[in-house]
Design a protein around this nucleic acid. Sequence first.
DNA 1: TTGTAAGCGTTATCAC
DNA 2: GTGATAACGCTTACAA
Lengths: 329, 329
Amino acid sequence: MITIRDVAMAAGVSVSTVSHALSGKRTISEATKAKIRNAIEELGYEPNPNARALRGSGSGVIGLYAYDITESFAASIIKGVERVAREKNAYLLFTSGTEFDENLLEGIDFLKRRRVDGIIIAYGIRQPIAEDVLASLDARVVAVNTSGQPRVPSVQPDDLGGGEIAAGLLIAKGSTHPLFIGGPPSRVASADRLAGFAKGLQRSGIAFYPERQVAHGDFTPASGASCLDLLLDRCPDADAVFCANDYMAAGAINRAGALGISIPRDLKVIGYDDREFAAFWPIPITSMALPLEEMGATSATMLFDRIEGREPEPMHLVLGARLVERAST
Amino acid sequence: MITIRDVAMAAGVSVSTVSHALSGKRTISEATKAKIRNAIEELGYEPNPNARALRGSGSGVIGLYAYDITESFAASIIKGVERVAREKNAYLLFTSGTEFDENLLEGIDFLKRRRVDGIIIAYGIRQPIAEDVLASLDARVVAVNTSGQPRVPSVQPDDLGGGEIAAGLLIAKGSTHPLFIGGPPSRVASADRLAGFAKGLQRSGIAFYPERQVAHGDFTPASGASCLDLLLDRCPDADAVFCANDYMAAGAINRAGALGISIPRDLKVIGYDDREFAAFWPIPITSMALPLEEMGATSATMLFDRIEGREPEPMHLVLGARLVERAST
DNA sequence: TTGTAAGCGTTATCAC
DNA sequence: GTGATAACGCTTACAA
């Protein structure tokens, strides 16, 4: 292993000169700079990050806790995080919740033990940060997919706005009796998407009676199908359905097909999340794409702000969803 | 920051005693052990991993290079790797190819600079390790999803065996005129699946003429559809089709539906990879599930073998695929 | 069974 | 502009 001393020897200067040449923290004559560059090149010197971290000034590693990497959302978020980390020349230490039985506190602790410079917590489903977790977090943490809470900077998708956009599209397509198929009412994303949808309809003066036109499934295709049955029973004159995710939209489309309902002529369907399969479903599904990579990248930027002593501005960022129109509408 | 010295002070012993108590590398009296435990507990001491890494004996971090984390295969492989890493109390430094313009050499270098104890390379699509890469790799590397090459331990899925299983299933279901829709012929996975399929058919004495019964798409749903058209044209009496991946199977099923062909009655369809959507496709798709998590876990085990100075046994592991039967057959 | 002390490779504080 | 040198927190001979 080749060290800074070797470089100093080869260049005929002292270690401190080499160190300073590397960091640029003091003025070095062009001549010595060149000698040092040559020596480094020749020897193939690479500074030892462990020694650097030991001496002080951060380790150049950030920790990422993702609830379930297997969930495709996590992957896209990580991709965004990594992009920014690369720009900052930082490394990404990865941990997933599944390995800690979803015990976030323990996972965070694991990362802290490694002396990471900061931590990004990517929640699998939108939720507030638990009290005990909140208490244990210090300044170098950013949360993704949570609600804006004091102290911890956060990035979240604009589910409310997404719902509104969906409403706008259906209205533009001529719908006057739209339905909504949601996930469990307790799920923030589903609730927000519904709220935005209702708001969008109201603004255009479209009547919307949640007690009749809304049903709640469990985000699975099967529940999308059964909810559609239920709703069509209650509202035979329905002409569109907004589903809180693509799985339920897929199920609803299947069901409609089985019932002989023509899509999009008789029923327009719009999903959410823009899952991969939406693009090539037998009837390709119009959907709302989440700004996942952007969420990851933004959270990383915020984290580096904090690491470098700046306050992220704003502290809580809400990123818009993007409408992807396909055959189902 | 609380150090080993603080613990030593508090416990009234020397630092080396504390160090040895922690590592268990020499016998310490129960009494002092207890004192040390108490001090650690009380002070909340956590050993500094950077100092440890600096002094010697590994950093406790392994690097994982995945071509594209956004590809769902990568996520499952990572999950397997992480499980084993946790058992070994090691950390995972993550890097994806997309951040290095798929320049594997550069990505590997990035990880090496961080002084990781070892590296797992997870290829996105099955391929041999490039010559230049091979040359740059040292002993502490394991490759996933490649072919068995000397020097570098590897883990790969048994695409050949998977093809045979697919043939066996179709035969069991009474097929006598099966078709094959492959990806680009140059793709190892597709070629192996076809070879296994042909082998399985031959063993049961089913006639199979590749020049007529095989078509090559590009792994997309659209190509699955067009290949089916082509093949049905050539073989109107076909009663089954094995597709080299689920995307093409999905496209083929769509197309068959449009042509009024009843699945599975008139045409049995089997895909490969067991993608998420296969389970809830309008006609759920029979598929071959890849042993992804197992591949990840095994590669990690092999890597730790090497790190700890043992030779992995065997050097090249081929893991079987699992048949998942659904409505399409 | 325990303690002393010499590094590991850097950076930063002095001094020149 | 440049050099010594003392830390950083830990492990591990070597002594006792």
